[in-house]
């Protein structure tokens, strides 16, 4: 599929990574990443396993704070505000920058409670039923669950659970949605549904998606960042950004040979 070029000449930058290195203890997992993520676009992060895609993604909403010893050097800004500044409340950050995980992880609660969870903790003032319906509709799940909202979220199939998790993330009314391999546990039909959903969501949200599926990256994303890992003198591997451009460029005529090899399946 051909990517749709954004009508504005320069879209707004939502997340800006400036020379960021990410550490787990003394181990540097990712080095010197610099990239901008634009509003109302889908940005795909691709690259071989262990190159730090999830690590970088988790830094965007400070989920890496949950990992003891994880830290960021350099700067990551959100609408110009340094995410790692002292006066930033990570809880507030996560309310604006939602996340969908690789493995569907609904809470052991009813479908209803799963979706409105974020609204509840955010002290949402509006109508919960309405929020529930719009979120589930946006996640293309409403028709399948509207008659069993009180059943456990765990009673759904894997694909439905993942869409439930997307609905749950949308219901928090975030600005950015991060997705870490959201389709890797799903069948082709569910995958397609979620890809369509991502297309829909782009109107209202900024999306960053990690994927191992090249076709998926070409289908859903506007821009693609290719990461790779290289061995260091200490014997461990550090991830770095090889190339970042419009998806069509990355997949059709990338500047780097490594990118070409990877996207054409001639890697390693």
């Amino acid at each position: 599929m051909i990517m749709t070029r954004n009508p504005q000449p320069t879209p707004k930058v939502v997340l800006q990574v400036q020379n960021a290195s990410i550490f787990y203890g003394s181990f540097r997992a990712v080095r010197d990443v610099t990239m901008d993520i634009y509003a109302n676009e889908v940005t795909a992060l691709i690259g071989p396993s262990g190159c730090g895609k999830s690590t970088l993604l988790r830094c965007f909403n400070r989920m890496n704070d949950l990992v003891p010893g994880a830290r960021v050097e350099g700067k990551i800004t959100y609408h110009g505000k340094d995410l790692y500044a002292r006066d930033v409340d990570p809880v507030e950050v996560r309310r604006r920058i939602g996340m969908v995980f690789q493995k569907p992880n609904p809470f052991p609660k009813s479908i209803y409670d799963n979706v409105v969870f974020g609204a509840r903790v955010n002290k949402y003032k509006g109508d919960f039923d309405e929020l529930l319906e719009t979120s589930l509709r946006q996640a293309a799940l409403w028709d399948e669950v509207k008659d069993k909202l009180q059943e456990s979220g765990l009673s759904l199939s894997g694909g439905q659970q993942q869409r439930l998790c997307i609905a749950r993330a949308i219901a928090t009314k975030p600005d950015v949605i991060l997705m870490d391999e959201p389709c890797s546990a799903l069948d082709p039909i569910s995958t397609l549904k979620i890809e369509e959903l991502i297309h829909e969501l782009k109107q209202n949200y900024t999306i960053v998606i990690v994927t191992h599926n090249m076709q998926q990256a070409t289908r859903v994303s506007d821009r693609t960042a290719f990461f790779n890992a290289e061995a260091t003198e200490q014997g461990n591997r550090v991830g770095y950004l090889v190339e970042y451009d419009h998806t069509s460029v990355i997949f059709n005529n990338p500047k780097q040979k490594a990118t070409m090899d990877y996207v054409s399946g001639r890697f390693g």
């Binding site: 909403n61 989920m63 949950l66 809880v91 507030e92 996560r94 309310r95 939602g98 996340m99 995980f101 493995k103 992880n105 609904p106 809470f107 052991p108 609660k109 969870f117 974020g118 509840r120 903790v121 955010n122 998790c165 749950r168 993330a169 928090t172």
Partner: peptide, 27 residues
Amino acid sequence: LPPYLRQGAMALGATRWETILRVLIPA
């Protein structure tokens, strides 16, 4: 309890105590 429960709650903007009271203890 599986760690993804905590991660899921935190990623939705729950504080530590909201995570404990609304997700971990019920689970």
